[in-house]
Every structure is written in structure tokens, then in C-alpha cells.
Write a protein that binds this DNA or RNA. Structure first.
Lengths: 122, 122, 122, 122
DNA sequence: GTGGTCTAGACCACA
DNA sequence: GTGGTCTAGACCACT
């Protein structure tokens, strides 16, 4: 379900939180749905429970989750406007930065289009 | 010349090293050309000299730079084959990962193509 | 337990490492015995945890200690032959250098013997 | 004339200054006698002129030397009382510390006396 | 709580 | 002026 990059310099709790956030926006996990327990998830992705705890806790502080003592963590209802924002503020800039790098490496638009063709999207 | 993302969880020295590596591959800085001194660069991008040094030092260990004490850091002659490798190992996977995320967010190929159109590349 | 000379130009981490090494040779701390935690020791001798860590790390590289992540640093089994070597290579030369200086300052053997008398040794 | 320890963590300018100070106290170099020029000395002991300069400068600040522009550095008249002080404050404590270490290493007074016998002192 | 890493500022040795 | 080292504080991952 989740894949953390061991090598990355980005903290694991941050990687995990980002992935969860994506799943929420994308509605793979829906509002008021229960997340896996800290212990279960930590076992599944082979990291320390404390780290999972930190991800959940951070998402709770940011309003993406809420917790019920003794029961677990649940997805909070989300503001759908945020999706547009995230696309504009995160996805798009990252895309342009990547294309800029591709340009530096001497890639042509044609080659990028070829890559794009290889992906199923619609 | 360089722009570091203060917010990013990726260490500054790592961000900087990556940017320098790109400039070397792209031949904005050529072999045996001198890099800005540690202090000059640290002042310019407003970070601690130590952090710049760590970037330079890492690149030296990886063979991208060589240093002369009391004189400065210089670009080492590079193996151009590595460019192909970096495109395959870094750029392409990052591109696909990004498209995957875009898909999750419900973006269509058409929208991506629109973004692509906005970029000067060829 | 340890006393660092703040004034000395010798790095603190070096002073500390030397003192620890002595304690190990002298078996004040025995093989596989746990050292104080980095933070406990740093608090005790009022220096930055990083400095203690550097001492421990250096001793680990030299084979005097081994570490277990999340548990602590431990004394490695030592080769007792090294004691003789250290006496010959460190203690004795230092002693002779000191006597040489004493001579320059016009001290006589008698005065040195007087100093020696003041120390409990046997 | 001087011997610096390349390995030592003590700064070279400090090592040199200490040695010069000793020679002054011990009257190997007398009051108002001229010291070797910075360039000559730096060549002799194979270190950078700047480093010698720093030693001389420090000794001047501490009152052990005075300089005459265009001529060189000279030994200042010294207060002989300082010799006693240096013996008490430097030599003696260092001696006791060394004996303490010797004790830790299991050396007996007899062995120290044997060492002492090997040195010409009187 | 444990060890490990990143950023930072001051100082050293050298050209 | 150059690169290199030492000390320091905050944060990460894990027991």
C-alpha cells in the first residue's frame, strides 16, 4: 500500500504523511473511514511505530485526520477546493521544474512526448 | 545562480550538490573551471559556509570536483556517458512518478499536454 | 569523572577520548561495560553532545568501543599488549620531554625527587 | 633550533610561541637580542611565514618581545619572578598529572626513579 | 530514553 | 583571500 524510499533524505514520517494525504485527496480512503492501526501499518511497511504515530499526529494537526481515543485514526471530511490548490501549488511547479531539468539535459519535446505516450493516464 | 528551497526537508547541502551536478553535466560550468569560493557562494545564497563546503566535499568524493588547498574547487573532467544514465535513473523515474500522482489527482493526458505546451523546450 | 581543560588548545573531543582510553586500559571501565550515554556525559562535563559523540565515534573507529544503536556505547575487548606500547610511546617520551624542560628552567634532580616524594604511587 | 609536532592538535603558532617563550626564560636568547627574521625562521622550520608572524605577534602582545619596524623582533627584558610562577603553574601540575597517569598504568615509583636516572639533569 | 545527522559560527593553516 | 576543523544546538529514527 505504501512505499517509503529508504535512501531519501526526506524524513520517513514526512514521506508517509504525504502519501496518506494523496490517498485522501484521491479518495482511495474516504471521509470518516478508519486508517490502519499504528501497529498494523508499522508492521506492514516495516518501520518503527513511533514514526507512523508521528505521521498520523502531524496529519491530525493539519486537519486531515481526527482520532478517537482507544479506537483509532479516521479521515476528516475534506475541502475539495484544496485539490485544485495542491495541483497548482505542488504538482504543476514540480512538473515545470522537471521539464526545466530535462531541457538542461538536452532532451527535446519529442522525447518527452514519447515518455508521456508510455503512461496510461486517461 | 542557485536557488535552495528553505522549506524542503531535503538537506540544503544535498540540494546544492544536485544543482551543481546538473550545471556540470549541462556544461554551464566546464571541466577545470573554478567554482565560486566556499565563502563567496555561502554569502550569495545566504547559507553557512560549512554547508557549502559539505556540498563541495561530497561532490569531490563522488569525483565531480577536485580541490586545491588555498586556491579553490574545480570541476573534474567528466564521463559524458553518465548523462544518459542520469536521464534513465533520475529524470525518467521522477517523471513517471509525477505522472502517476497527476493521475491520482484526476488529471487527464490532455491537461498534461497543455502544461507541456506552455514550456519552451526545443 | 572526567575533567577537560577549557583553556587548552587541544580539542575537547581529543582530550576526552584520551581520558576514556586511559580508563579502559586501566580497567576502570571493563570490556563490554556500558559507557555513560552521550547526553548524560555531555551534561555532566558541560559540553555539547556532539563533542562527546565525536570522542566516542573516534574511539569506535580505533576499535576501543563498539556501539549499539538506541542502546549505547560499550567497551570493546582490548589487547593488553597495547599497554606496554602506550607506556613506551606516550608516557615515557612525555616524561623525558618534561624533564628536559625542567632542566631548562634550572631545576635540579633533587627538586624533582622532592616532587616525586609528594606523590603516592606504590 | 625548533621542532614542531606536525601531528599535534595544538596550533603551530602556539607550539612555536611556547618554545620561544621557554628559550627566553632559559636565557638561550637574552634580553634585547634579535630573533631570526620571520622569513628566515619560516624557511628553517618549514612553515608558512604567516604562522611565524602570528607567534611573534602574540608574544609581542604578551610582552615577551618588542618589534622595531624595518629591523625585526627583539626579546623584551623579563621579570625573573615569572620563572618561579611558570614552574609552579605549568611544570609542576604537568608533572603531577603525568605521574597520576603513570599510576593508572600500573607503574611503580621504582620504575619512575629508573627513568629519572636515565636523564642527565644536574 | 538511545545514537545519528544537519546547520551554524569561530578559528586555524596556507597562497 | 583560500580550504579545513572544532564546537554547538536542533531534529530524526529507533528501543
Amino acid at each position: 500500500m505504501f512505499r517509503l524510499d529508504e535512501q531519501s533524505k526526506i524524513p520517513k514520517y514526512e514521506q508517509l504523511a504525504e502519501e496518506i494525504k494523496d490517498l485522501i485527496f484521491v479518495k482511495v480512503i474516504n471521509s470518516n473511514e478508519k486508517l490502519p492501526s499504528i501497529r498494523a501499518l508499522s508492521k506492514e511497511i516495516m518501520i518503527n511505530p513511533n514514526t507512523v504515530q508521528k505521521s498520523y499526529h502531524q496529519l491530525e494537526n493539519q486537519g486531515y485526520l481526527y482520532s478517537i481515543k482507544g479506537k483509532g485514526y479516521y479521515v476528516a471530511p475534506i475541502d475539495m477546493n484544496q485539490i485544485e490548490q495542491r495541483i497548482e501549488n505542488e504538482l504543476k511547479p514540480e512538473f515545470f521544474r522537471l521539464l526545466q531539468r530535462a531541457k538542461h539535459f538536452g532532451l527535446s519535446k519529442k522525447e518527452i512526448l514519447e515518455w508521456l505516450r508510455q503512461v496510461e493516464l486517461d
